[in-house]
């Protein structure tokens, strides 16, 4: 387990000291959300209605932006091979990387969402709902995304291909995230069912993601 924590600490330190990645993701998030009112017109009622959906979709795209780097840097400088030879199982290594991605990108994006909600005239009672569903749903984005990142490690046009591979996998997360918010806005007790399923999807992703990503990484090692 200490290997897992060491790796996690290293990746988080790299994310902080390298900088750039998080700033780019947040900036991208801001720009995409800004484009929406420009494209749809500044009708505040309309924006209020679609705000949770826009925030969620833009969050998926922004998180996607930083996924190609998940294994790439370590693959390029050879430290991925060293990690594979070490005592830590490849599954745990992939899990640590995905967890680091969630901590360094998923959580900041989720916390940024309510700030951007102001731009979209988000309802006041929707703010905690947006944050709660995003915090519960973003682990699925990082862990499922790690599968795509591992698969596209050596491909041409990696980034675009990654989007094509991974976005269908995000559909359940998106649907239950949105349905939890809209259910809670309609009736106070409608929130929990969707929210629990959203959490379940994240938990499934935490198991499935590292196993599949490790299987994909293993093919690169041979």
């Amino acid at each position: 387990m200490s290997g897992f924590l060491t790796l996690l600490k290293r990746d988080l330190l790299l994310a902080v000291r390298e900088g750039g990645a998080l700033g780019t993701a947040l900036g991208f998030y801001l720009i995409v959300v800004t484009l929406m009112p420009l494209g749809l017109g500044p009708d505040l009622n309309l924006l209020t209605r679609i705000a949770p959906g826009v925030l969620w979709v833009a969050l998926l795209l922004a998180a996607l932006l930083s996924l190609p780097r998940l294994f790439e840097a370590d693959h390029d400088d050879g430290s991925l091979d060293v990690l594979a030879l070490g005592g830590l199982p490849l599954e745990l290594m992939a899990a640590s990387k995905a967890l680091a991605h969630w901590l360094s990108t998923g959580i900041p994006l989720a916390l940024m969402a309510p700030v951007l909600g102001i731009l979209l005239n988000l309802e006041a009672r929707a703010y905690p709902l947006v944050i709660a569903t995003m915090l519960a749903g973003t682990p699925a984005i990082s862990f499922l995304g790690s599968i795509g990142a591992a698969l596209t490690l050596k491909t041409r046009r990696g980034g675009l291909l990654l989007a094509l591979l991974v976005l269908p996998f995000y559909v359940p997360t998106l649907i239950f995230g949105i349905s939890a918010i809209s259910a809670a806005l309609l009736a106070p007790d409608g929130f929990l069912a969707s929210f629990l399923i959203l959490t379940a999807i994240s938990l499934v992703a935490m198991v499935l993601g590292p196993v599949a990503a490790a299987a994909a990484l293993r093919q690169h090692m041979h």
């Binding site: 559909v171 359940p172 649907i175 239950f176 949105i178 349905s179 809209s182 259910a183 969707s194 399923i197």
Partner: peptide
């Protein structure tokens, strides 16, 4: 999930 989403 889409079944769920749609009925809602």
């Amino acid at each position: 999930s889409v079944d769920w989403w749609n009925t809602l």
